[in-house]
Write a protein that binds this DNA or RNA. Sequence first.
RNA 1: GGGUCCGUGGCGCAGCACGGAUAGCGUGUCAGCCUUCUAAGCUGAAAGUCCUGGGUUCAAAUCCCAGCGGACCCGCCA
Length: 650
Amino acid sequence: MQVPSVNPFAEFRHECEAVLADAVARALPEVKVDTFPLGKPSNPSFGQLASSLCFELAKQLKQKPNDLTALVVKAIDTSRFTLIEKVESTGGYINFRVNFSKFSSLTLESIKQLGAEYGFPKTETPLKIIVEHTSVNPLHPIHIGQARNPILGDSLARILKFRGHDVSRHYYIDDVGRQSSVIAYGYAKLGKPKPDEKIDHFIGKIYTITSCIVELNRLKRQLEVAKSVSANEEVAKLNKEISEWTAIAGELEEKHPKLFAALLAKIGEDANPEEEINKLNRAYEDGEPNAKKLIRDVSDLCLEGFRQTAKRVEIFYDSWDWESDFVWSSQVSDVLQKLKSTPFVFSEGGVLEFDADKVIQTLGLKAKLGLREGQEVPPLTLVRADGTTLYTTRDVAYTLWKFNQAEKVVNVIGMEQSLAQLQLKIALYALGYAKQAESFVHFAYNLVTLPGYKMSSRRGHYITFDEVLDEAIKRAYEEVSKRSPLLTEEEKQKIASFVGIGAVRYALVDVDTGKPVVFTWDRVLNFETNSAPYVQYTHARACSILRKAAKTPEKPECKFLAEQLEHELVLALASFPDMFIEAAEYLKPNMIADYSNALADKFNTFYNALPVIKADSTELCDARLALTDAIRTVLSNALNLIGVVAPEKM
RNA sequence: GGGUCCGUGGCGCAGCACGGAUAGCGUGUCAGCCUUCUAAGCUGAAAGUCCUGGGUUCAAAUCCCAGCGGACCCGCCA
């Protein structure tokens, strides 16, 4: 046993494993057991760890589990006990009790010595990992439907970093799509105006209005053609679409009359705006200098807005990767050449297709990719008839570039792109990059939706992330003013800021990534139990006690921590490292939020039930102060993993 | 039609990867607790066919199969 220990509970577990293995070997020499799994019993009266080993052995040996546990427990060598207090058998289980006096000292002493480093056992195989996240197209502000991405991505990056990996956070800028040309076209038509608001919000308006006007223009021209050839069904369909877009145009005109009028007039100068946009798009892909400057400038402006938003929630990026760079350099065409030389690419009507299913068959990847027997993966179009590439094709080049500088790639991308991400992975296999394919992770998450309507950036139907943050801070301010009226104005504002932002981060990281989040203000801006403010408040409360006590006991005697509540707290603190390892290995950031809430819960119960400063004896007071200090440290360490501020006062 | 994910008290969720002892938590409802360390807190009560049906197992919310319900995907969009 080492002091300090990065993982006190693991020390106990290892001791139990060794003691159990030894006892089984002596009590039942005829059986061979490889692993001795230990689980946490549902009820603390059964001890801190339990083994159900004898249920399995019972069948093998044709004996009752109870008889076997009795034999094993009898053979246990108590002289090996360090952290174990007692081993007993109940109902077929072998239950291990920890010696709390020693275990509490080990845990509290470790936390005290390691401080901000406590709870983060380093991986034995540190990797260079690229976490790609956010990657919102620079066309409009980040909206709440997209905000779950940076929150999850940033939390993952923090967790992996603390696990000992070399993590780099990348933002992939998709500037090659047609949409980038739409916004650039509208912005240029307006004469590159100076914004009178946050730049990405301004860009977003221009994009939505331009896109709407161009779409209507296109539909109307199509309608003329359809009418001239009397394609009645087509006419009806177009009329329907036109009326939908006309309604959107009406909304936009009402909301932004000046901007709308200006764009309508300017775009009206072009006979065929759609063709202008396509021209711009082609020129950009070809790297024509004017197109390059225009689109890069507009994108840069929008990205500046994103950087400001990200900064508000303490999110930063190590690398901004432009998709266009991969097109202009030969990286995309090189990958295409390589793909073409494999037997998995075929041409159909001038279009290049990638036969993902054939790769699976040929290389026998079915099991590796977790696919079912009869499951087929549809082909992926690599190149259009006009010779231009598609998004996923370019993403293959980008992914290979990432693997040039990292051993593992984690893509934080919505689950709606699961198929494309799978095809990308298969393409890596097809190109002979099996090792990379295996280290390629699509971290999928479900969408954030608004009750009532579908969010659509093209239609301008969205709540921006900035608005959510503003509202969160506003509500937090009201809350602080109500609860702590004596604070100075400056303090209130500071608290409102980290409480509001913490609440949003917590709410978006808390739910299992497989489940959709329906956005409601009440849900996201929760200041009660199971929220960042609750955990933050608990942390501040612990700090307050330590401040008031005005002493840090040198040598607290942990044997005085004899209450059940105190034992549970020590166990929770000691289990933090195990939880962290699991969250890091299985990429489950929501575990961190759950843990911090559970620890806060236990501490608040303790706080209400047992006095710290006014404890019955100085020894007890010292021990409880040490416990409180350890809780403060662990809450802070946990919150840090999900990017939430742990305040000393609120 | 095919695929992926999800289904747990009224509502919102955890637990499921690795099966184990009375299924946790929050909210809402009801009843209480601030001359005492921060009430953004705490205590107690009522509230559950863990979607349904099979199967595997000494043991299933957890694994397998089928079905039902919901979201998303199956584009020469990104």
